[in-house]
């Protein structure tokens, strides 16, 4: 009897000790994971704060004028972000105008038309292409596309619109090969696989039952896509395209090589221009003094504001869509 009591006693104390150890390791682990999450928030806020801190000097001097001033003069230290903002917006708009219809077209091809045996290979190819480093698109634009475009397509386009009002201003000018249009086109090719794979995933969440019912009443493929799948997946498609827009706005390497780096605003899409990210990439390392550096960081802050707005809107739309579509997106 005594033996049993002793072993029971040992069991109780060692069990209490073990429990305590578990409790300690449990709360340590919990704090570790919580700390990592905190670090993610800290990095996010840190980016915002360092950009604000770094641009303090320039924003203090130029104030809100910084956004609308179109001069960029290192000698007189008169800096304005307007040309870079203009170039960023125009190249991204060109990219979206070209990439959204083609990307959605590819997604429709993959979900509705493509024979089953080709579906997987093409789908995987597109996802792999989405991972190609952006610098590859940039050098292709500079060494392959721009020379060809300059000699074969650009003079022809300039002639074609030579007498059409508005268009003749948009496509004016000596054919350089590089410029806003080329940059927009390269961006379009870059975000194309991204849009295609996101919209394909979204299209696949449309309930098969709804689609079959529509086909059953005699709808054509076009009618099923336009009246059933698109309305059902609207928020997801728009959210995916906005994610792509967020990438296009902040892309550096695909643009820097082909934009032409000019702080002048020209109505012609064929004119050289600059974007915020290209300006920072080209000038930051060589910026000689604090005001110049600060103006470049202020440009970065503007870019952060732009992409944050677009990405936040995209997140909210996609979240709402995921909730509605039942988690799979």
């Amino acid at each position: 009897m005594a033996d049993i009591a002793v072993t029971e006693n040992i069991a109780v104390t060692s069990r209490a000790r073990a429990l305590k150890r578990f409790q300690a390791s449990d709360s340590i682990f919990r704090w570790l994971t919580g700390g990592a999450s905190f670090l993610i928030m800290a990095i996010f806020l840190g980016i915002l704060l360092t950009l604000i801190g770094g641009s303090w000097l320039a924003l203090g001097k130029f104030g809100w004028q910084f956004l609308t001033n179109s001069s960029w003069n290192a000698v007189t230290e008169n800096f304005g972000a307007f040309p870079a903002i203009y170039g960023t917006l125009v190249t991204s708009i060109i990219a979206m105008v070209l990439a959204v219809p083609i990307g959605i077209g590819i997604a429709i091809f993959l979900t509705e038309i493509c024979p089953r045996s080709l579906k997987r290979p093409i789908g995987i190819a597109i996802e792999l292409l989405a991972g190609i480093p952006s610098i590859i698109y940039g050098i292709w634009g500079l060494f392959v596309f721009a020379p060809y475009f300059q000699t074969h397509a650009q003079p022809w386009i300039i002639d074609l619109f030579g007498n059409v009002p508005i268009m003749k201003d948009l496509f004016a000018g000596p054919p350089y090969g590089f410029g806003m249009f080329t940059a927009g086109l390269i961006l379009a090719i870059m975000v194309l696989p991204f849009i295609a794979s996101v919209t394909r995933d979204v299209f696949e969440t449309a309930p098969a039952m709804l689609k079959e019912a529509a086909y059953g009443t005699g709808c054509t493929t076009w009618e099923v896509m336009w009246r059933i799948v698109l309305p059902f997946t609207q928020a997801g498609v728009v959210g995916g395209c906005m994610l792509a827009l967020g990438r296009a706005l902040g892309e550096t390497m695909a643009v820097t090589f082909v934009i032409g780096n000019s702080h002048r605003i020209d109505p012609s899409l064929f004119a050289p221009a600059t974007t915020i990210s290209a300006t920072i990439a080209n000038e930051f390392a060589e910026a000689p003094d604090d005001m110049y550096k600060s103006a470049l960081i202020a440009c970065g802050l503007v870019l952060m504001g732009l992409t944050f707005t677009v990405l936040a809107a995209a997140q909210l739309m996609l979240r709402g869509f995921e909730r509605r579509a039942g988690g799979k997106a």
Binding site: F44, L51, G54, T252, S277, I297, L303, M304, T307, L311
Partner: peptide
């Protein structure tokens, strides 16, 4: 945290360069 993470996921990488620079 999820929101911050999703923004970081597609934030322009040049801004991350500026952040670490500062």
């Amino acid at each position: 945290v999820r929101f911050a993470n999703d923004i970081l996921l597609s934030a322009p990488s040049i801004l991350i360069g500026l952040f670490i620079y500062e």
